[in-house]
Design a protein around this nucleic acid. Sequence first.
DNA 1: GAGTGTGACTGAAGCGCTTCAGAACGTCCA
DNA 2: TGGACGTTCTGAAGCGCTTCAGTCACACTC
Lengths: 351, 351
Amino acid sequence: MDRPRKPTLDTVASAVGVSRATVSNAYNRPDQLSAALRERILETAASIGYAGPDPVARSLATRHSAAVGFMLGQQLSAAFSDPAVSIVLDGLASTVDGHDHCLVLMPGNETGGPRPSTVARAAADVVVAYSLPDNAPALDAVRARGLPLVVIDQPVLPDTARVEVDDEGGARMAAAHLRSLGHVRFGVITFGLNPDGYSGIAPPARVSSAVFRVSRDRLAGFLAVTGPDTPVFEVPGSRRDLGRTAARGLLRLSPRPTALLCASDELAFGALQAAGELGLDVPGDVSVVGFDDVPFAQHSNPPLTTVRQLLTEKGRRAGELALRLLDGGRPGEPSRLPVTLVERDSTAPPE
Amino acid sequence: MDRPRKPTLDTVASAVGVSRATVSNAYNRPDQLSAALRERILETAASIGYAGPDPVARSLATRHSAAVGFMLGQQLSAAFSDPAVSIVLDGLASTVDGHDHCLVLMPGNETGGPRPSTVARAAADVVVAYSLPDNAPALDAVRARGLPLVVIDQPVLPDTARVEVDDEGGARMAAAHLRSLGHVRFGVITFGLNPDGYSGIAPPARVSSAVFRVSRDRLAGFLAVTGPDTPVFEVPGSRRDLGRTAARGLLRLSPRPTALLCASDELAFGALQAAGELGLDVPGDVSVVGFDDVPFAQHSNPPLTTVRQLLTEKGRRAGELALRLLDGGRPGEPSRLPVTLVERDSTAPPE
DNA sequence: GAGTGTGACTGAAGCGCTTCAGAACGTCCA
DNA sequence: TGGACGTTCTGAAGCGCTTCAGTCACACTC
């Protein structure tokens, strides 16, 4: 245990024979002292094993920590295995890192979002929230701490920066595409509407009380075109295996849907697999569309027709907004990203 | 700008009419004061908008920050898009989160690893390093700060906890499997040997001077069986498209290799694709093996023969080691995880 | 009634750093 | 020669919290 006490600014100061302020300046304001002295200080510091000002103490004194927090609605596991999350996170990370900020991860739990105590303990100057349920306690915790907040894919919150995507419009485009191909019997596959782990056909009441904005909007877009009676299969996450389960459920219905609308590409990949396993040809027997246009969508078999959203850009914008808020900027207008339909080979007219 | 000054412990203390120490105890040591007073304090705090002790100040006073740092050899983008990284990170994250610790991400850059200044500024009590090049400056920066360190897939470092996998043995198993099937003409696909972006056939000198332990060991395992003259195609990362490029390069050689040994599953998936595009049947015309056994390996076409390593467990162990070091534990023996060969359908005897 | 606990609360000393208003000392020009 | 100015360095006041050695009052025991 008891490591030898680490050197501090004072240690260095007295070793060199100058004041602590001067040593601090050597690190933070080179223009405040002569080059020679600075050199001497840095050398001495190195020789006694001083690694520079302690980040925590510095944060306390300066009242900012050069870190941006990232809150997630799901376990990190889910986040990393879902390209739609990890690509966003990547855009965010590269932006903040370019500005010498760290990224502090606050993973969520079953109830959708980090525990408030996690939020209360994390050292961050600003936090970015992604795919939390509406009214997640973590959101309140952030505001209670008075930290600036930027949300991605989240409903409008007062005094909060925001990046958003036209999920409903995108979903509508996908559905309209299928309808224009001549489909009339649809099935919808969606990830969680509520963070309660439900899996199965979602009754209308569930649909209308969804607390995840993304699910809600994509679903609304689909149903606006296909009609409110379209069967909706809900699964508790955006994973291939869950998509497969859902597709199996839907493709067993009779009459069988001729088109499957999936709330994400991962779900759609699962649907593709399920169709194959059931001996159904895609798009011959059943058409499938996804949402996101993750990189793999062009390599699936068949390549997936899907709604493209700019995932990296989403993270990047969130990062820029966070940085702007840090500089005391105002939230401003939400940053809105476009969606486009990408037609590939998983859709065709029904037989 | 100028937000109203935030309430502190003192604000609450004088509002309630007790000492600051008592308010602190209300949060951290409920047994040190009467339940009634504690209640009163917490209520008052809530009413004046005090969100609990400031994490930074607390860290300074307690001298630990409840955060574990994670250093990565690559950009975060690469990390998240590579399952072999993201699954490890997930295991790590869930472990530390379960212990009320945050994860601070320190992404690397082109030169392989976070900048030393990033390391110097990050508030963390312990750091976990993954797939950095040997002798990365970031490693020195950690030791300069006197932080405990745990490394994954990294050479032995004095006084450092470590989790490791028998990469060489695994690679050898994969190669031996092919050889026992009767193959004699091999090609090897590896991700970066040096963080310099090189792409192409790697001359022997490059191979022997590799600075990434994982590449080096897997390569060594392959070549120990296939012979030192086996052509090695190096690409600067573990991605499908790069695997495709490499496989194209290798499959154009004459005589054409009948078996491709890939340093990762992602590279192997790319190889599968390249073979298809060149009109070659797998495993009829060419066998392909991967390394990692990521979840998709069972769903590729054909399902991939590969070397399984326990990725989640790897992250989990790293997390446990980190936590143990935090408690003042000693590094102890390295934690070694097993590898096994998983035979699927991408390998067969040569024609 | 003196002695012994015990539970509840406080005072004050830090944790390691930044920052700002000077002090000290030259230099330079009028 | 003296004042104005620059440069270089310092003293001291925080930043918001934890913690430890007490103090105090009030039972309780013999």
